[in-house]
């Protein structure tokens, strides 16, 4: 078994989980789905530099070849941006839950109608 196979299958499983959760109806699941999906995307980006062992991208006189630094740099910022996106999605989910009392992504069944006119905010149920 090669590392490449493990890596590719891991990406596949993460993508599958990510897609499935992103299609669920509640905001928190969608956030989880986004998280899994981002893991997969970051790994995929990283994979574009191919896998290397014991060759860090730190210059030294002893080393003869290095890991590809460019995908690493891209993925590094991507990881941080992913956090920004997740945080934003979480807060959006929270605000929408507090605002509407429902944690469904599309509000409720009447979502389409509600988009046509401003929603009437209901009192919170005790």
């Amino acid at each position: 078994m090669t590392l490449e196979l493990l890596f590719a299958t891991a990406i596949g499983v993460l993508v599958a989980g990510g897609i499935y959760l992103s299609l669920r109806g509640r905001t928190f699941q969608v956030v989880l789905g986004l998280t899994l999906f981002s893991y997969a995307v970051n790994l995929f980006l990283f994979a574009s530099g191919r896998l290397t062992i014991d060759r860090a991208p730190i210059l030294s006189k002893a080393a003869s070849s290095y890991a590809d630094p460019l995908p690493q740099a891209l993925v590094l910022t991507a990881i941080v941006i992913t956090f920004g996106m997740t945080a934003f999605a979480v807060v959006l989910a929270l605000r929408s839950f507090l605002e509407s009392g429902s944690d469904q992504v599309d509000g409720d069944d009447a979502a389409c109608d509600r988009h046509a006119k401003p929603s009437v905010t209901s009192e919170p149920s005790e």
Binding site: A8, I11, G12, L14, V15, A16, I19, L43, F44, A47
Partner: peptide, 8 residues
């Protein structure tokens, strides 16, 4: 998952 994993 199969598609993306296969591409990877």
């Amino acid at each position: 998952g199969l598609g993306v994993g296969g591409a990877a």
